[in-house]
Design a protein around this nucleic acid. Structure first.
Lengths: 197, 197
DNA sequence: TCAATATAGGAACGTTCATTCCGTAAATCG
DNA sequence: CGATTTACGGAATGAACGTTCCTATATTGA
């Protein structure tokens, strides 16, 4: 059943992991094909043959991120957890992941392609990460809504507003960590944030 | 007392304002000298003669930003205000400024040069904005500390932790606004955040 | 009016960018 | 084995990057 033609000499999973780290460190625009090739070990022909373009590789790298370290944000969708616990686990998991020395630091989705050139070029890349952020936001909101129904969360608050507050905090965490704020302080701050709900 | 030599045909203040907006829209790296020249109206020789380099122009543009719209963050240092009021005014003022249609949207300091190429090139630009973020963080902390002394803020909380929570929220606001979250919702979320203190 | 000083315009610098093309190598299918 | 298909390594593409150089121009101080 193997494919026709010469087989690939690289493992796609490993290539995506290396590319993810490059984009993570530098953002979309500042990641050059030269460095992506160096870190992945791919020739230009192989890279473009397999992923089509820098933008195509970025989208695949984002998928890889979400399937991997970035998956912590989906803890708010765990229906087996108490909503407030789910929020807490998401917050602490996110901070832990973003400060894990095994990764470049911060959040790929929060930091890549927030601003950029006006050209049509990186607009697609920005849309890719903005879409993921929108998912995170609505996931948090749904979790809080369950908490209200559950009685674990204050009923006098608009879940949409609370979700925006929590998500704004989460987005800020990336910059804080890059600025050298200690992870432990952010964990404590996250707990404080949750006491308001 | 006018200077010797041929006088400048541009007004520095206007040039800095135009450059600030370019950096604001695109970030440091994605702002090309070509567009900076187009928006400022300066020739390459004038630009480099007056500011030395792209990085030099960026630093001056950041100063201009802080002296202008970015100055809202310094409301937390207003000792004539009740600390909690000062925090509130800073938060609402920041959200209002970042959603003001007269400006590109978001915060120049929060969005520019958070990530970038590893080269020595833009490291200086990142340090410039990181330093400003550190000032904001400690300003918030000092304000909260005054609130504790004042009795307006809960005494059982570590002001450093509370400041990190508030600042993380502030940093996240930029991305939220760029993602299309309504300013009104962020204003309400800011009020909710302050109720935790 | 004449040297000295500083800005302006514009071409040109070498480098890096993302991407494509070409000849060769390694697999499957008939 | 021959035809086909896919992937590889590496050179080459034109465009854009930040920066510098050169010449002309406009001012001040003597």
């Amino acid at each position: 059943m193997a494919q026709k033609g010469r087989p690939r000499t690289f493992v796609e999973h490993e290539v995506l992991d290396a590319a993810m780290r490059v984009f993570w460190r530098h953002g979309y625009e500042a990641s050059s094909i030269t460095e992506l090739r160096a870190q992945t070990g791919l020739s230009a022909a192989s890279l473009y043959g397999a992923f089509g373009s820098k933008e195509g590789l970025f989208e695949r790298a984002i998928e890889h991120y979400i399937a991997g370290p970035g998956g912590v944000s989906e803890l708010v969708g765990d229906l087996t957890l108490d909503p407030l616990d789910a929020l807490g686990q998401m917050l602490h998991g996110t901070i832990a992941m973003q400060s894990d020395p095994a990764y470049p630091g911060g959040c790929l989705v929060a930091l890549s392609a927030t601003v950029g050139a006006g050209g049509d070029d990186d607009v697609a890349a920005r849309k890719t990460v903005a879409a993921r952020r929108a998912e995170d936001r609505s996931g948090i909101e749904a979790c809080i809504r369950r908490g209200v129904d559950n009685g674990a969360v204050r009923a006098d608050l608009d879940p949409a507003i609370s979700a925006i507050m929590v998500h704004s905090f989460v987005l800020g965490v990336s910059t804080q960590l890059l600025d050298g704020v200690p992870p432990a302080a952010l964990h404590t701050a996250a707990d404080l944030l949750l006491t308001g709900l």
